[in-house]
């Protein structure tokens, strides 16, 4: 599957910071990640897009959509 990269490739530094931050929490909203790592929301969105395609991050739906490190959060009971 090829993903359309609308905003060009993501910034590797932002990707690394997103991974680092997600390592410290269970799950987060992308906006909170952007605020926490001091990056723009669209840069974070772009990084998350690549990280999910790389199977490092995944989306999680618990009343709203969160992101988390792949496999970190189990499906809730």
């Amino acid at each position: 599957m090829v993903f359309k990269m609308a905003r060009g490739p993501a910034d590797p530094e932002v990707k690394a910071k997103v991974l680092e931050y997600l390592g410290k929490v269970q799950k987060a909203k992308s906006r909170d990640v952007a605020v926490a790592i001091g990056a723009s929301k669209s840069d974070v969105d772009n990084a998350v897009k690549e990280l999910t395609a790389e199977d490092l991050v995944e989306y999680l739906y618990i009343t709203t959509t969160f992101i988390c490190l792949k496999g970190k959060v189990q499906t809730p009971d």
């Binding site: 999910t52 199977d55 989306y59 618990i62 009343t63 959509t65 499906t75």
Partner: peptide, 20 residues
């Protein structure tokens, strides 16, 4: 029924809704 959690395909965050 319960719902939510992680169900999706690689690179997508939606389109599949978890039902248990």
């Amino acid at each position: 029924w319960k719902h939510g959690g992680i169900v999706g395909v690689r690179g997508y965050g939606g389109g599949v809704i978890g039902r248990y």
